[in-house]
Design a protein around this nucleic acid. Structure first.
Length: 416
DNA sequence: TCTGGGGTCCTAGGACCC
DNA sequence: TCTGGGGTCCTAGGACCC
């Protein structure tokens, strides 16, 4: 029997499509969605892509251009996108049974037979039931399927890449077009005279291993049609949780940094408690602007906790300590973040004998805090530093209503 | 004036151990 | 005067992805 193929379903211009779902009149209008802080363009409609506006471009650089073509601009609205994302995957699960969610808008799945018919049906069902346009690529491996998906996007939304097709194409496919090959890797390949998929495939495996390490060998295997990355049934447990944000303006004031770190600790621990998870390591990072003379002056520092915890008070203390150690007085910081690592289910975390009783008390306190903040308003009851008019807080000017997650914003449907 | 946020995986180099 | 070497674990940072 034929070896199974791997499919990749990817939502087209996902954030833009989500916004259009509730504003159908924007169907053929140019639309962009901005990152938080309204800093960069993170999603573009086809009209915008055709204008040559690149992904990730700073908003201020193209504000005027967008105005000229009467483009509609949205700030990111992740609660909405996550909700639509869940609907897409739930339809996929109904149709396929087995699939692996890869990102907010992509999932891999196994294709056993009749790839053309299967993906055609899948595309139609998802589009009919969720209303988001999707593209599907099918090939031997995940890396090839990614490429097939890019071909699907250029055509009618479906591309099944067979072996003959692939061997013909690999002569011209540049390594930089592939999944996992970024700017640095591309340069390294070039230095060794490797530019196309064929170049890499005709290289000696041992040499690739020596020069490019395990990632090089894996890429070579995947391109040769030997799957290294399998479609996994169960989702691996998440390994880390991060909260970070750029400041509206850079700061050299450690009090402002303490304020933002405290916010991120609260944010990240609230999420952890909601998932009933604990962490055994915490990392604090503070960074200057990537575009300033201070680029290299940022850093991060980790601490190992005596026992896994999701207690805001414990983590706040450790995080502040780490911040004090990292902080350098002459550096203008633009961004700060907190990561929790070594995640585990709260119940199975190892308790240390000494703080067992204390931990019980805090657990009650934390759950009271969480429910207050949920009932009243986020961040209404707070542990640790919180400056009024937080100097570092971001702005989102043009966020769409919470159509699917807040009753007050539910879309109204009118029938004629 | 204004350049995102949340993840994963890999590796170099130091600490430590025997 | 000459002062081991190999393994493992940890941390920080880099590269990449969406």
């Amino acid at each position: 029997m034929e070896k199974p193929l791997i499919g990749l379903l990817d939502c087209n211009n996902f954030f833009v499509s989500c916004e259009r779902l509730f504003r159908p009149e924007l169907k053929d209008r140019p639309v962009v969605v901005l990152s938080s802080n309204d800093g960069c363009v993170v999603a573009r409609s086809k009209e915008i892509k055709d204008m040559g506006v690149p992904m990730g471009v700073p908003y201020f650089q193209i504000k005027d251009t967008l105005k000229k073509v009467d483009a509609v601009t949205f700030s990111s609205h992740f609660a909405l996108y996550r909700d639509i994302s869940r609907r897409v995957f739930s339809v996929m699960k109904d149709e396929l049974g087995l699939m692996e969610q890869y990102s907010i808008d992509e999932a891999f799945f196994v294709v056993k037979e009749e790839p053309e018919r299967l993906v055609q049906e899948l595309k139609e069902v998802v589009e009919r039931r969720v209303g988001i346009p999707v593209s599907i690529g099918v090939a031997r491996t995940k890396t090839q399927a990614k490429y097939a998906n890019s071909l699907a996007k250029k055509g009618n939304g479906i591309y099944v890449l067979n072996d003959t097709d692939w061997s013909e194409r690999m002569v011209t496919i540049r390594l930089s077009e592939l999944w996992g090959v970024g700017g640095k890797t591309e340069l390294a390949f070039k230095r060794h005279g490797l530019e196309t998929v064929r170049d890499l495939l005709s290289s000696d495996k041992a040499t690739i291993a020596k020069v490019f390490g395990v990632s090089g060998v894996r890429l070579q295997q995947e391109l040769a049609g030997n799957p290294v990355y399998v479609v996994s049934k169960k989702t691996e447990p998440q390994q880390s949780v991060l909260s970070s944000r750029s400041f509206s303006e850079a700061t050299t004031n450690i009090a402002v940094l303490h304020d933002s770190i405290a916010y991120h600790v609260r944010h990240v621990t609230t999420n952890m408690r909601a998932m009933n998870m604990s962490a055994n390591r915490i990392r604090v990072s503070i960074m200057p602007s990537r575009h300033s003379d201070f680029v290299l002056r940022g850093g991060s520092k980790e601490a190992v906790l005596t026992a896994p915890t999701n207690d805001s008070m414990i983590l706040l203390k450790v995080a502040s300590q780490l911040l004090e150690e990292l902080f350098e007085a002459d550096v203008p910081y633009k961004k700060a973040g907190v990561t929790l690592l070594g995640l585990c289910e709260s119940e199975i975390g190892q308790e240390t004998l000494f703080n067992y009783e204390k931990k019980e008390e805090n657990t009650v306190l934390m759950s009271v805090l969480d429910s207050l903040n949920k009932k009243i308003k986020k961040e209404s009851v707070v542990i640790g530093s919180r400056l009024l008019n937080s100097a570092w807080q971001s702005k989102s000017e043009v966020r769409s209503p919470a159509y699917t997650t807040k009753w007050s914003d539910v879309a109204v449907v009118k029938a004629n």
